[in-house]
Design a protein around this nucleic acid. Structure first.
Lengths: 263, 263
DNA sequence: CGTCGAATTGATATCCATCAAAGCGAGTGG
DNA sequence: CCACTCGCTTTGATGGATATCAATTCGACG
């Protein structure tokens, strides 16, 4: 619709600001208008705007934060998808969670002295950059925002809890169903679902790394679920054909999404 | 030694305070003296002391927070061990992480509107209770403490990241080695290790639920590792016979523990 | 001595990993 | 327009790791 078109044009429009800053003005941030996010006072938004240091676009596959990095900044994901991962010395890799627009990127890395994980852009992304050295300042001057940052940290933890439960307890089919349902709901909350379908940019290797399965077994299970009519894929979009059934397969408890803060 | 004896007597000593509060005075908290924890200003400690609402002792097996609970308080674990877990409708259960003395208990539950997980006492425990409704107040009045709470939340997330990587990527033997090494290091940082041995109160069922393995397979792998000389168990204590080798088996990168905040 | 929960052990079934090869689609250069 | 390459996906065959079932042992405790 109109809103959709506005949104898409806005995403590609990057306003160049003085002093080398490139950005979308936070007061007019289109993400902020979505019902998924809580309202903020003008004061808060102005603080955020002042703290925003850059608006950065990166192509799919870029490192946003590399493992061990000690000076990682804090970001919010303005558009696109990313993922956090951890690698073992022998090359095995676990994808810890996926990041969608509006998610805080690199909170853990900006608080701890060194990142214990990497973060990679899954699609082309745009990031709002907040300097790490000003996070402390934020805690001192903006208690409401610092509370919301802690809240977002806890929410991310609870998403990882879900993934851990999935990988530890569910079989291959259940894991895929749980992941698809979880991403579907998050995309839906952002208004990115239409006709039960949404952009699904994961390769099967990435799926496998997120689910703790081999590539081959992922492929076989994935196509079994498609053949059984749970969902279909075309043109990079995934369509859920039977959301209720998929949720039951994933033995997912109905979890409501309340509006959440956007820093 | 002397310190050890003092500590043990202190643990069982619970001072009854007026107004029904039972507690250990925070200014003299023996946990706080350990090198694992960062120093605090007197102001901060006084604030914590004033916020501390109760000092509660619970027997092993008690629910500290039950799944779905909406009014969970915030705790620190004063003594004993606990674990966070998540259950599926059909009874499968994933243990998400273990909590040791000094760990914050229920941060996620006290920030989000409902707990997505349960927390259970693994041994007899003592808890310092901080009322949920005053957490906001803490963020407003004590930026330094709120920053440290966010820091502790990120640290917990990074521990869960490790567990997820373990469960998703490592085989049974590696998972056990990684868990043992991780608990060993945490216990060591708290001064709970002597002669390479420390209290290890997990049942094999709990081990299995933490590792995403069946009880039977856990038992077989566990005793295989013991026979191969990695560690031994006696009287509820685990002794690491070859820490370097165990760490290598777990393909653990050397991770330093910097001093951390104790709220 | 009897009981109960936890740990152990053996036998078998199943899920998932690994190996190998073929298919497919998008891009590229002739 | 075709041939070629390259990455990603699909499929078949086989082996291995882990789950499940069943029975026994062990240890704590009354």
């Amino acid at each position: 619709m109109v809103a959709q078109a506005f949104w898409e044009s806005f995403q590609t429009m990057t306003v160049t600001m003085k002093q080398g800053r490139v950005g979308v003005p936070c007061l007019a941030c289109p993400l902020r208008l979505k019902p998924a996010f809580k309202d903020k006072t003008d004061d808060e938004v102005r603080f955020i705007q002042a703290m925003k240091f850059d608006h950065r676009a990166l192509p799919a596959g870029s490192d946003i934060i590399h493992p061990g990095q000690e000076d990682a900044e804090l970001y919010t994901l303005f558009s696109g998808w990313a993922f956090r991962y951890q690698s073992l010395p022998d090359g095995r890799r676990q994808i810890l969670n996926f990041l969608l627009p509006g998610d805080l990127v690199g909170l853990q890395a900006s608080l701890l002295s060194a990142a214990q994980h990497g973060i990679e852009a899954l699609t082309d992304v745009e990031l709002c950059v907040f300097p790490r050295r000003r996070v402390w300042d934020l805690f001192v001057r903006m208690p409401s925002l610092s509370y919301e940052i802690a809240w977002l940290g806890s929410r991310e933890e609870s998403l990882i809890d879900e993934n851990l439960t999935s990988v530890g307890q569910r079989n291959a089919g259940e894991r895929i169903a749980a992941l698809v349902i979880s991403l579907y709901r998050r995309a839906d909350a952002l208004g990115l679902v239409s006709e039960r379908s949404f952009l699904f940019p994961l390769s099967q290797q990435q799926l496998a790394d997120a689910l703790g399965l081999s590539l081959v077994h992922t492929s076989k299970t994935w196509s079994r679920l498609r053949r059984s009519g749970l969902f279909s894929i075309s043109a990079g979009r995934l369509t859920l054909l039977n959301p209720r059934l998929t949720a039951r397969m994933a033995s997912a408890f109905e979890r409501e999404f309340e509006p959440r803060p956007l820093i």
